[in-house]
Design a protein around this nucleic acid. Structure first.
Lengths: 166, 166
DNA sequence: ATTCTTGCAAAGCCTTTGCAACTGC
DNA sequence: GCAGTTGCAAAGGCTTTGCAAGAAT
């Protein structure tokens, strides 16, 4: 459903764990590293895909990792703050993707099947830089989402497929 | 809070009404045009700004137009289907903006005050066209959102300002 | 020991929906 | 008069939160 990988070597989960511990320790009031967090990071960083919170909950369940919904949500927020995950809004869905060790990229999103394709667009920043200068606007990040129909969905011409993914 | 206008003449509300009636009539099962809908269209198309559903509800209240929340939501959906409004996701907020008679444009969004600045980027489509071809992806629309801090917020350096707009 | 984290259930927020009364065509 | 629209309140998703019990430092 949601995939699409820029061909980069995966950061090993241990590196992500390490970085997360540094983040926790560096806080004004240091936070604690727990077993649930370690399991979540290992689970998330041993694959590279887009996922939403509910998906993650059920996959963790299936993997016999008993982590409550509340903890999943709380940990996801911390992972975003730590810079390990990025929260991306693709269509109407909020998805998470790797941030740590992963380059800036944009998204093609299929309105039929929800598939996500990543691509890099290095010229993009230059394109809006001028406008920002003009307005005295200090850009910090951007997101380009292109919606449409992916090859497979065009081919299988399935007009009765669920369109409410996005 | 949310503004930013590409300098174009405003379509008069009557045109929007007209177009909406055509949309309603053109449906397989024709829909009805009601007083509540007329009031909403006049209200929305006599200004050009970004707004969310809740904002619109309270402004309609303030204008003494008694339209229920349910009707506001239902009518907004129809206006989007009719191509009069566009639903845009800016940061974490879902906003509506004029679509009918308004050119494609991108957004700068201030993370401090929520201000929205519109700009045109005609080169953008060419930029992702090549990637789409590569993947056999048929693009239908796109959205480029640049987040950062606007001039006024940089100047007033108000680090205690609410950051949870977006 | 202290203080953060967890799990649960409850509450929040935004949006949709079922139903009876109403209204456009 | 039929069929779509409205208002109300209730229900739906998804996410956050209060609290008591448990765990990390």
């Amino acid at each position: 459903m949601t995939e699409g990988i820029l061909q980069r070597p995966l950061e090993p989960p241990e590196n992500a764990v390490q970085r997360f511990r540094e983040y926790l320790a560096s806080r004004p009031k240091p936070l604690r590293f727990t077993e649930a967090q370690r399991q979540m990071i290992h689970f998330i960083f041993s694959r590279h895909n887009h996922f939403d919170a509910e998906q993650l909950c059920s996959e963790l369940d299936r993997a016999q990792l008993n982590i409550s919904r509340a903890t999943v949500y709380r940990t996801l927020n911390k992972l975003v703050s730590a810079g390990l995950l990025r929260r991306v809004q693709l269509g109407n869905r909020v998805l998470y993707e790797h941030d740590y060790g992963y380059p800036q990229h944009e998204h093609l999103v299929c309105d039929h099947c929800g598939k996500v394709i990543e691509f890099e667009a290095p010229q993009l920043e230059a394109m809006y830089e001028e406008v920002c200068r003009q307005y005295g606007f200090q850009p910090s990040r951007h997101s380009l989402v292109v919606r449409g129909i992916c090859l497979e969905c065009v081919r299988s011409r399935s007009p009765r497929r669920r369109l409410d993914w996005i």
